[in-house]
Write a protein that binds this DNA or RNA. Structure first.
Length: 929
RNA sequence: GGGCAAUUAGCUCAGUUGGUUAGAGCGCAUGCCUCACAUGCAUGAGGCCGAGGGUUCGAAUCCCCCAUUGCCCACCA
């Protein structure tokens, strides 16, 4: 053994970390910033492109530059960070590319606030000055959210940080727009769009939230031309009648058959409009007659197209009635509605008002009611783009995790309508189309034109509008990697490995990246899409500004630390489900970190001058008689914890590969707390404190080191700060990290860091027998503790225990574990009986499968209590026996169930019968006493 | 009107392809400041796995139906 030791590599202690004594509780504030700076300044987040290596890449969903970190971001990025740190440790060529989104509307609003404070406005400074101001704003405040991501521990490659409005991304946008234009996939036209009069711009269909609101259904009579009854229509928006051009009824509707083709008079406007027939009309709703306003209702618009109707727009940009509204011109929408209703009533044409709840469209940003209106805008033709995007998912080239989200994605694309991409804003990618004022030509080229190529006129003007912010985000997976240039990043990292985002973003972003990626890269932008849920408050409500129930992640980081926040956000639920956030959960997570901290502190106490040696080489844990003269250098507990550690490593690896972070976290939690702390460390104490011969101390240290160090690696993706801090305190053998394992492929690093250590690999520590034996030993110890507790034995008082083992193999290892039982169950002496005859006369006891336990009580045994307990046990055992034997006497079960299942049941029955027998004997003895 | 999810201990949630005596954290009860940790240790109480059918030798797990809650989608004026 001594020989082995000299062969091991001499440890050379890491000098980098100042080894302040570790405090009794973990203090995240004291270490988090230090380690983040250490990682970032040493360039650990950055990896060069290494074409030979397997790539793993993620593009971060770019938060708005105006954004402040909220819990949704925190969860989203913590998830990505776990995946990236895991893969990095596994040795992949890893890239996590961060960036921000220029967020047209939001950013304009911010800058407008600043301008207002200076007493001016957007219009006041003009377009060029405004855009300049916005860039200046971005420069000053745009780093806010990325600083906050650093606080969270995000290990993204800041050297490759991008911005959707930077030079490269803008070029990609230009390129894509022109290409789509040339392919006929982008067009300009007069169609009905959603107008937000507060944001003063169009918004796309998905930017409209439909909210149920209580409203009214007004019944209005449109008389016929002779002043007769005419027809009564029902509407939820009476003011739009100013733009009515027809009344529609169902062609089969007997009530109105005679009216079809005739005219009625539109009240207030006194214009004759036709009654038309269309099967769209539902005769059973309202009066069965619908007023048709093609300029302000999507359905009416469609019907207008079918019947070739005029479109009369009655609203201006601010949502006020325009000159087409006759005497109502200049009125604000709500005011106009009131006036229209009043006037109809005084004319006797208002036939009734019903209460009616209906879905009202409102702007997703400002919640202003959206007005549908006909307007000349730019659209992306979705049909040809959607088809391949659906195919990619149907064929499994892109996989959603959890799967069910694929259906949501497909459902949306199946019913997709063209995407309105022009916005009446200034902050964004300006539409690269020029119009010739002379000949009216439309010019769309890669370079900025100076004259009209058709007529040669220099009188050309660029389109005033900018593109939807999501247009540039849609290119994010390739624009950030250098496209349209053919870069090595693009070659190595596209397609990216996985995209992580919330389910509310599937339509806005995921779908659009997919069709853009397929169109321009000819390959889907990612292999997997991991969708996570929302963060809810403790009562299960969404966190919303309006509810005031939001929690600031930075406040949590201050109070509990980033690792606690991360772990809490990542565990305790299943992928894709929402997560409730509350204080108690945070506290118990913090306690877990503290547990790790203290277990490590304990470990370090005993590893102060320890020189890491290779456990596998020194004492192969799977071979029992390896070391001469000490046939049990490794104890049962040693073999057990090593086996468990490796089992956990395997499971954690598998779970992480399946994106099942919650389970991975739970497995680690249970391992550290229940197995490593509550059992192994306790059992190893006598050896570690040197109460045994030195060789045993060395083995205990080596096992402890191996398991602790390995567990830190497994925990690192979840808890990067805590694990790095502890790891830096651990002794390390020279050259066993970066260079030795060649991990990050970055031998120039002078510093060691846990984040670049290799992910634990199986080393053959699994040992089923040890796990089984340890299970029995634990049961024995628990049984003795139960007896102590049941009989109220004072904690300080040691007791004697006698054991009888039916099985000789069990007897053998129990004999070797007597000291463990003494230690863990506070016993004076534990003896193993050769036969039941030897058992102590007056005793409390327990019968396990294969082991009987006797605790002698000198005179103060409560006989009645003990009898009652035994009877209760007998009852339970009988029930169990009955269940098992009826199961086993069922021919259906015996014949059809798999052999191993049947065998297992047989074994159980045997064990129960044995236990029952001993319990009965015991019962007899107690009674005869 | 469609679709999806959830329904398991007082609360918040796990439970892999059907094979358990259904688990955890918090809370609760009892006893412990045991030389890593009271942000801790030990022991314990607490569940007809939403209701009803079915498939199976066997169902918390698969199928059908219903109920409740939540979310998404939808042009019923």
């Amino acid at each position: 053994m001594a020989e082995k030791n000299t062969k091991t590599v001499r440890a050379e202690k890491t000098v980098r970390a100042e080894k302040a004594p570790m405090s009794k509780t973990y203090d995240p504030q004291a270490v988090e910033k230090k380690w983040y700076a250490f990682w970032e300044e040493n360039g650990f987040f950055t990896q060069p492109v290494e074409p030979g290596k397997k790539p793993f890449s993620i593009v971060m969903p770019p938060p708005n530059v105006t954004g402040v970190l909220h819990l949704g971001h925190a969860m989203d990025n913590a998830l990505q960070d776990v995946l990236v740190r895991f893969k990095r440790m596994q040795g992949y060529n890893t890239l996590w590319l961060p960036g921000t989104d220029h967020a047209g509307i939001a950013t304009e609003a911010k800058v407008a606030e600043h301008l207002a404070a200076e007493g001016t406005s957007r219009e006041g400074v003009g377009r060029d000055r405004f855009v300049e101001r916005t860039w200046a704003w971005k420069k000053e405040y745009g780093g806010n959210i990325t600083r906050q991501l650093r606080r969270l521990g995000a290990s993204c490659d800041w050297s490759r940080e991008r911005f959707t409005f930077d030079e490269g991304c803008s070029q990609a946008v230009r390129r894509v727009f022109v290409a789509l234009y040339e392919r006929g996939l982008i067009y300009r036209g007069n169609y009905i769009i959603n107008w937000c009069s507060k944001c003063h711009t169009t918004i796309s269909d998905i930017e409209v939230d439909h909210v149920e609101r209580d409203g009214h259904l007004w019944h209005i009579r449109y008389p016929d031309e002779e002043g007769g009854a005419g027809v009564v229509v029902a509407t939820t928006r009476p003011e739009t009648m100013l733009g009515d051009v027809a009344v529609a009824v169902h062609p089969e509707d007997e009530r109105y058959k005679d009216l079809i083709g005739k005219n009625v008079v539109l009240p207030l406007m006194n214009r004759a409009i036709p009654v038309i027939a269309d099967t769209y009309v539902d005769s059973s709703f309202g009066t069965g007659a619908v007023k048709i306003t093609p300029a302000h209702d999507p359905n009416d618009y469609e019907m207008g197209l079918r019947h070739n109707l005029e479109k009369i727009s009655i609203l201006d940009d601010r949502g006020y009635i325009n000159e087409n509204g006759g005497s109502y011109c200049g009125l604000e929408g709500a005011e106009a509605r009131r006036r229209v209703v009043e006037d109809l009533e005084s004319l006797g044409l208002l036939m009734g008002i019903d209460e009616h709840t209906h879905a009202v469209g409102q702007c997703y940003r400002c919640r202003t009611v959206v007005e549908p209106r006909v307007s000349r805008q730019w659209f992306v033709r979705m049909g040809p783009l959607a088809e391949p995007a659906m195919e990619a998912v149907r064929q499994g080239r892109i996989e959603f995790v959890p799967e069910r989200f694929a259906k949501i994605y497909l459902g949306w694309l199946e019913n997709i309508r063209d995407w309105c991409v022009s916005r009446q804003l200034w902050w964004g990618h300006r539409i690269p189309v020029w119009y010739c004022l002379e000949c009216g030509a439309e010019i769309c080229e890669l370079g900025d034109p100076s004259i009209c190529p058709t007529c040669g006129s220099a009188q050309i003007e660029q389109d005033e509008d900018v593109l939807d912010t999501w247009f540039s985000s849609a290119l994010w997976p390739f624009s950030t990697l250098g496209w349209p240039r053919d870069t090595e990043e693009l070659k190595q990292f596209y397609p990216t490995s996985v995209l992580v985002t919330g389910r509310d973003i599937i339509f806005f972003w995921v779908a659009r990246m997919i069709f853009m990626g397929l169109e321009f890269m000819k390959e889907a932008p990612f292999e997997k899409v991991m969708i996570h849920g929302l963060i809810l408050d403790r009562d299960g409500r969404k966190m919303q500004k309006s509810l005031g129930n939001g929690i600031d992640p930075l406040v949590v980081i201050e109070s509990h630390g980033a690792d606690t926040l991360r772990f809490m956000l990542l565990t305790g639920n299943t992928p894709g489900n929402d997560l409730r956030f509350y204080e108690e959960k945070l506290d118990s997570t913090r306690n877990f970190l503290n547990k790790i901290w203290n277990a490590s502190r304990f470990g370090l106490m005993h590893l102060e001058d320890y020189e890491p040696i290779d456990l596998e080489e020194a004492f192969n844990p799977t071979h029992e008689d390896r070391v001469q003269g000490h046939d049990d250098v490794l104890t049962l507990a040693d073999r057990w914890i090593l086996s468990r550690y490796e089992g956990v490593a395997e499971e954690v690896t598998r779970r992480l590969e399946d994106f099942d972070l919650g389970e991975a976290g739970r497995v680690l939690y249970e391992f550290v707390w229940d197995e490593l702390c509550d059992w192994y460390i306790e059992l190893a104490k006598p050896r570690l404190y040197g109460r045994d011969i030195p060789l045993f101390q060395v083995t205990a240290r080596t096992v402890l080191y191996t398991v602790l160090e390995g567990t830190l690696r497994l925990l690192h993706p979840f808890l990067p700060f805590l694990t790095e801090e502890i790891w830096q305190h651990l002794p390390h053998a020279a050259g066993d990290q970066l260079a030795g394992e060649g991990l990050a492929g970055n031998e120039t690093h002078k510093e060691r860091t846990l984040m670049l250590c290799s992910w634990p690999q199986p080393k053959g520590f699994r040992n089923e027998k040890s796990e089984k034996d340890m299970g029995i030993l634990m049961e024995v110890i628990r049984a003795v503790r139960n007896i102590r507790s049941d009989f109220g034995v004072a904690p300080g008082r040691k007791i004697n225990v006698a054991l009888f083992c039916v099985d000789t193999r069990v007897k053998e290892f129990i004999r070797g574990a007597l000291a463990d039982i003494e230690l863990m169950a506070s016993c004076e002496a534990v003896q193993v009986l050769e036969s039941l005859e030897e058992k102590p006369p007056q005793s409390a006891g327990a019968a396990l499968d294969g082991v009987q336990i006797f605790v002698p009580f000198k005179g103060f045994l409560d006989l009645d209590k003990e009898v009652a307990k035994v009877e209760k046990d007998i009852e339970a055992a009988c029930a169990e026996e009955k269940r098992l034997s009826s199961k086993l006497s069922n021919p259906g079960f015996v014949n059809k169930a798999p052999v191993d299942v049947v065998d297992r049941e047989r074994e159980k029955l045997e064990a129960v019968l044995k236990r029952l027998k001993s319990l009965r004997r015991r019962q007899g003895e107690l009674k005869s006493n």
